[in-house]
């Protein structure tokens, strides 16, 4: 079989394994949807004026949850699964077969593309149907959504694979979830970015999550809110540029640091 066909086969294997890992499905796939439900209920009292402003809690938190979903299904899933597969010998086992390495990566990309697409569609459906959140009404916004989403997912995937080399499967959970949680708090996912102190905003600006969240706000929030951003506008061009930069850096890191073997065994 050629590499592409093997990549498709790997994707189906990855999807099977993913869907059978209940914890992963819950904490990466359904988590942002549950949080959107939760936040919409908890913070509804702060948006009592919604009839006049058109802003509801669900609409306000949707961009952040979409951004969190991108990071969870790409970065977190990759970092944790590749670290586990390296430690338990799955990677070495694959390396022992004539499978081309590219097929393995295609399988990972396929998994992330499928899960993150289904996840974002579910998120948007819940937002639209349960909370009446208006979806983008211009082609330009959908185009920006496609750009931010695909760069975010690709960057998260390659960065996650590179990040998996930092720890063993025993410690990878803490090594991934800790920093990621901090980033979510300072990047405007759970807490409005404007409420984050400026120096922390600058820290967050180094990492891609802040830019994914900002891009998603540009997609889903009314233009009137753009003035509340750091730069006073959505900066869509800059968002795409930073995410593209991270995607390229992630790919280079991934290709230069990837190893099939557990640390200290070869």
């Amino acid at each position: 079989m050629n590499t592409l066909a093997l990549g498709v086969d790997r994707t189906t294997v990855e999807l099977k394994m993913y869907s059978r890992e209940k914890e992963a499905v819950f904490f990466s796939f359904l988590f942002p949807i549950l949080l959107l439900l939760l936040f919409s209920v908890i913070f509804s009292s702060q948006f009592e004026d919604s009839a006049r402003t058109g802003m509801t809690a669900a609409r306000y938190f949707l961009p952040g949850m979409v951004a969190a979903g991108v990071i969870l299904t790409s970065f977190q899933t990759m970092a944790m699964s590749v670290a586990a597969e390296r430690d338990d010998g799955t990677l070495k086992r694959l390396r022992a077969t004539p499978m081309p390495p590219a097929a393995y990566f295609l399988g990972k990309v396929g998994l992330v593309v499928c899960t993150s697409l289904v996840q974002v569609v579910l998120l948007l459906l819940v937002a639209r149907l349960a909370f009446d959140v208006p979806l983008p009404d211009t082609g330009g916004r959908w185009l920006l959504f496609a750009g931010v989403f695909s760069l975010g997912v690709f960057g998260g995937t390659v960065l996650g694979i590179a990040y998996s080399s930092l720890a063993s499967s025993r410690s990878i959970g803490a090594v991934v979830i800790g920093p990621q949680l901090v980033l979510q708090f300072i990047s405007g996912v759970y807490i409005a970015f404007t409420d984050v102190p400026q120096w922390l905003q600058q820290v967050a600006s180094v990492f891609p999550l802040k830019w994914i969240a900002q891009g998603m706000r540009a997609v889903f929030l009314p233009d009137g809110l753009a003035s509340a951003e750091m730069a006073g506008s959505w900066e869509p061009g800059r968002v795409l540029l930073v995410l593209a930069g991270w995607a390229v850096a992630g790919l280079v890191l991934c290709l230069t640091t990837f190893t099939w073997f557990k640390r200290g065994t070869v």
Binding site: M1, A5, L6, D9, R10, V13, K16, M17, R20, E21, E85, D87, D88, G89, T90, R93, T97, P98, M99, A103
Partner: peptide, 19 residues
């Protein structure tokens, strides 16, 4: 190790395709 979430048939089928 690994492969825990698959069945022997699935793991064998997917491996066989590489050859």
């Amino acid at each position: 190790g690994g492969l825990d979430l698959l069945t022997p048939r699935e793991a064998l089928r997917s491996t066989a395709r590489c050859y």
